[in-house]
Design a protein around this nucleic acid. Structure first.
Lengths: 140, 140
DNA sequence: TCTTGACTTGGACAGCGTCCATCGTAGGAT
DNA sequence: ATCCTACGATGGACGCTGTCCAAGTCAAGA
């Protein structure tokens, strides 16, 4: 945690209370929160924090590579604090929860040059979809 | 084309001019249009068609399995008329265009049971990201 | 302590999508 | 060919997510 704040300060971040709270929220829970959920949790500690600041801070954390943006559906983006270890996502089709998973193999290597159509391919996202144990049970 | 309309009629669809036009737009161009793009193209043939109808019709086509919904970024969903042949997507990080690609390998096999956390995994989406030739050129 | 420019604020705004009351019409029935 | 009626279309209001901006605030170096 203080690691994160130290890294950010080292990159020239001005360390405001708002940024500190957002970083603490993300670092505290290793779940995948939406921007509004981050805002709600941050506001519990710092009631006047504005939505715009949360969006700004999240955007900065993403471009610094400290946090990953995850768009699993057409709804709100989610923010993944586990940006340093490569991983993929497993999403429940019913309740929407997201788990980090670590598949074997390298999907980038599975895309032959002939299938790249001149794109400069730089990243792959793999999203596994299914029913989580709770939802599968509720549906049975 | 008439295949699609026949299938839909066989499933009890009331065949209105609006639905016909939406189906024709999707079937005509094998690109991945947003709902608004579908609406614009449909309106060229049927000027009074409403956005709500386009959304309704797209939603019905999706739940009938005739069209796939693709949420590649936090922006508008895109609709993929190529729902019958399995494939993955290659997305331009700058302009958002989507191409179908056919990688080798089976990503489902790359997720060991120990990494499934009890989920009944039923599908995998692989999204390759990069810059398309046009955007790469514009950025140089 | 002072200064300054980076940061925050809150409200307006834009894009995407949904909802709803009302009107229109496809297609079976006669 | 005409009638009926339930299903579908309409369009405008609304909600959610996210961006932008002008004005005010404050972290941190001098």
């Amino acid at each position: 945690m203080s690691d994160l704040l130290e890294r950010l300060r080292g990159r020239g971040w001005r360390l405001t209370s708002q940024r500190r709270v957002v970083a603490e929220v993300l670092d505290g829970e290793h779940v995948h929160l939406t921007a509004d959920e981050v805002h709600a949790r941050a506001a519990r500690r710092l009631p006047e924090i504005s939505r715009a600041t949360v969006y700004n801070t999240l955007g900065e954390l993403v471009s610094l590579g400290e946090v990953m943006e995850v768009a699993t559906d057409g709804r709100a983006k989610r923010y993944d604090p586990n940006a340093h270890r490569p991983h993929q996502h497993l999403v429940c089709a019913s309740c929407g929860t997201v788990r980090d998973v670590h598949p074997t193999g390298d999907p980038l290597a599975d895309l032959p040059a002939a299938e790249r159509f001149g794109f400069a391919v730089s990243a792959v996202e793999v999203t596994y979809r299914g029913l989580c144990p709770d939802c599968a049970r509720a549906r049975a």
